[in-house]
């Protein structure tokens, strides 16, 4: 598989603290890549460097081989990177459909349009994107009235509307009830496969990680200490010692078992 997104030796220091130390990984089309590790291990820092919120001190980010290091989030969006946030970010004073239309207006380069009314622009495409995440029926509701789980789905629709090639998801299941978590992750996985989108996500819920990731990166103190298939990562003694512990390993095992029976393992 060719690399869609590649991080090469990303490093970042804050004062005297090394937040990320030569972090390298690659992401293939259609792949679900999870990044896990204890708090303060550098997940957020790495994620922010890939997503354009933070410029690395050294190292590069490549998208389809092209250097995109240090580009703004807006520029990264135009090159095909979509993202969701730990606390879902939507436009609270707009309807659900308008939220998605916003992404399409932006992708079409129309946001500086001063005259034509925005309300009907790209509505069909937006409805389609909403239908894909199961939110079409709520299209005309004010976003502020949705349940949080639904807001997360709307955010996913916004991130996917402009057909990105890479999706960055920061704690995609945070704040959701158990049932919603599983459904959302399954949905993301299906769409990623369908559209060959590479998905990089951080996650604290080991059930979600081991049930849905194709590969897992483990960060501890700013360094990648393990990377590989879920089974291998679960067996890794260092990962158990530094992060998973007995509890996490057991959760992981159960998630992996359930996965075998559901979809016969990874592709």
């Amino acid at each position: 598989m060719s690399a869609l997104l590649e991080a090469r030796g990303l490093s970042k220091r804050f004062g005297g603290v090394v937040a990320a130390d030569a972090v390298s990984f690659s992401l293939a089309p259609g792949e679900m890549l999870a990044m896990i590790g204890p708090n303060g291990a550098g997940k957020s820092t790495t994620f922010a460097m890939v997503g354009g919120q933070l410029a690395p001190d050294s190292g590069r980010v490549l998208l389809d081989g092209a250097d995109v290091t240090g580009l703004s989030p807006a520029a990264l969006f135009r090159r095909g990177i979509g993202r969701t946030f730990q606390v879902a970010q939507t436009f609270a004073t707009m309807t659900v459909c308008e939220n998605v239309q916003m992404a399409l207006l932006s992708a079409a380069g129309e946001v500086f349009g001063l005259w034509r009314t925005a309300r009907a622009r790209h509505r069909e495409a937006a409805l389609e994107a909403l239908a894909r995440v199961g939110m079409a029926q709520a299209a005309d509701r004010p976003t502020a009235t949705l349940a949080y789980g639904d807001v997360k789905r709307v955010e996913l629709a916004i991130a996917l509307a402009a057909r990105p090639r890479v999706l960055l998801m920061d704690e995609p299941t945070a704040g959701m009830a158990a049932q919603e978590r599983a459904e959302l992750m399954a949905l993301v996985r299906t769409i990623a496969r369908e559209r060959a989108i590479g998905v990089l996500f951080t996650e604290h819920d080991m059930g979600a990680v081991f049930a849905h990731a194709d590969r897992i990166l483990v960060l501890v103190r700013g360094e990648i200490v393990a990377a590989g298939a879920p089974e291998a990562v679960r067996e890794d003694a260092r990962v158990r010692a530094a992060y998973l512990g007995e509890t996490g390993a057991r959760t992981a095992a159960q998630a992996l078992d359930a996965r075998e029976t559901h979809d016969g393992g990874r592709p």
Partner: peptide, 24 residues
Amino acid sequence: YAPFGYALRAARDSALRAEAIGIA
């Protein structure tokens, strides 16, 4: 009511989200 007004409102509602969908 035009796209620009919507973009401006989007940046107000969530600057993070607005940047992430390409709005400068």
